[in-house]
Design a binder for these strands. Structure first.
Lengths: 209, 209
DNA sequence: GTCTATATAAGGATAGAC
DNA sequence: GTCTATCCTTATATAGAC
């Protein structure tokens, strides 16, 4: 029962970070939200940056897990949708990171290298998936187009949530990743063969109910 | 000679905001950089938020200017490239806004509505340009694909600079918008007719020297 | 218009009692 | 493990002399 305070600090912090932005969350606000004293918070974490660091570690672990794609997989389009769904879900769970990225990376400079590595890993993942689609003759692309597409996919998954929440008014909590998956589907579609494109279009429409 | 201090404050602030992020720039740093006293700064601006507000006003004016596209234009692909170049240049000039967007919009909530309006305006602009390409039979798209494409174009121009600067190490000052234009070209390419796509590909390669 | 000096407030973090 | 009280630092902003 006692051991759980540390975990509660982490989840409360994550919630507040996502809700109102990490820079706007003070240690006092966190402890207040949990009905503990600020001193107690500092018993469990030496500093606010330790909290951010640990949450980032979770993000990194989740991403590494998700992006461990064997180079020789053969993914179907439906499985691709499932993967994208999980990816968007994870990114949304740690969306505070992307909401104020420059500020966060300057105040916690240790994270920068790691952040960039994860970015490369995402792009690599998309490359593997596109290769798989090519092998199955669902897709055919010359090198520069493939490079541009993978870069585009990476940019889109990273910033989709920020973009979408900027467009829509409020209503930010519990947003589902469907719109993001839909968007990525339409990014892939023009590069697919006719039959694969048709299948993906159906999946996309299904996806938005 | 005397009247210029106000302008110097604005341009110095803009430079610092872009360089190290608006939240990390204190009024003291601005005045220090200019070799004037903090008191002097506060003679010209009642608060830091007034500086941010005025810079945002400039951004808005520049954008409104750029996005005043007559609905019946017939743009060539080369003109499209020129337009994108200007667009990226303007977005880069005020990149600090997108670097810490949530933080800025919570601390200056007045900007939110305006920001969203500009976003809609960008998307509207892309819609007009795509319509123009369609009229010239360079492009042919069903409605959902067009919607997704315009949304994608909007997202890309807004976040390209953030994404690109995250990927590359340092070297942020005076980055040219060519890579962004190139990326948008490749976003359009698969939707064009064969001849238009060929033309755009040549333009794209030209663009990166 | 510009300066110096200072008020005020907020946030991160520590000390020591319980 | 948790609390209360407090210190330290930094940032915005103002007052008043020049």
């Amino acid at each position: 029962m006692k051991v759980k305070t540390r975990e509660r600090i982490l989840s409360t912090s994550l919630g507040l970070f996502n809700e109102i932005g990490e820079p706007n969350v003070t240690t006092l606000l966190i402890s207040d939200e949990m009905d503990i004293s600020p001193g107690n918070l500092y018993y469990h974490f030496r500093s606010k940056s330790d909290i951010v660091g640990e949450l980032f570690g979770q993000y990194k672990a989740d991403m590494d897990d998700l992006l461990a794609i064997p180079p020789d997989v053969d993914v179907g389009l439906d499985q691709l949708g499932f993967f994208l769904h999980l990816l968007f879900e994870t990114l949304e769970r740690y969306r505070f990171l992307y909401h104020d990225l420059v500020n966060i990376l300057t105040r916690y400079p240790d994270l920068k290298a790691s952040f960039r590595k994860i970015l490369k890993r995402k792009e690599k993942g998309f490359r593997i998936l596109c290769d798989s689609l090519s092998r199955q003759h669902h897709m055919s692309l010359d090198q520069p187009s493939l490079d541009a597409l993978c870069e585009q996919l990476t940019l889109t998954v990273c910033y989709w949530e920020s973009f979408d929440s900027l467009k829509e008014l409020g209503n930010r909590n519990g947003m589902d990743p469907a719109r993001g998956v839909y968007q990525v589907f339409y990014l892939l579609m023009p590069h697919l063969t006719v039959s694969a494109a048709g299948e993906l279009r159906l999946l996309a429409e299904d996806y938005l109910r």
